[in-house]
Amino acid sequence: MTDHLSAAFAALADPTRRAILARLALGEASVGELAEPFDISLPAISRHLKVLEKARLIARERDAQWRRCRIEPEGLKAAADWVEQYRKFWEERLDALADFLDAKKQATIQESKGSRDDKQRNRGSRRRD
């Protein structure tokens, strides 16, 4: 997995940052507007925005005095694609697990049948003696 995908997941792991993204999904916003619903300081919001920006989940206007933030759909898509890759990986692993369990069940049945046969053979041989 590439580094910024790691960064995306680390960024998404925080509920405040997820809430910020959910707000930005509705449209661009300034830092002040983003801070409004939270009981946290502007510098704290800025730190969260830096994490999101580094993870390429949001973009901020470079030059404007009031740097508005907007969501970067590509970053989120990368995270969703990652989940899909894992879905495929686990589907295949679970197929293999099903095969393994079937084989193990067969082996267990054979084993118990085998030990029954052994007992019968032993009884038989004793009778022949």
């Binding site: 809430a19 009981d39 995270a79 879905r87 686990w90 069940k105």
Partner: peptide, 30 residues
């Protein structure tokens, strides 16, 4: 601790959390 107030506002982000969670259900005959 100064940021715990954000928890109430965080519910809007739950959909995003779901998007980054993988869940698979499978039944095995064992």
């Amino acid at each position: 601790s100064s940021e715990t107030g954000a928890a109430a506002a965080a519910t809007d982000g739950d959909a995003l959390s779901e998007e980054t969670t993988l869940r698979l259900v499978r039944t095995f005959d064992a």
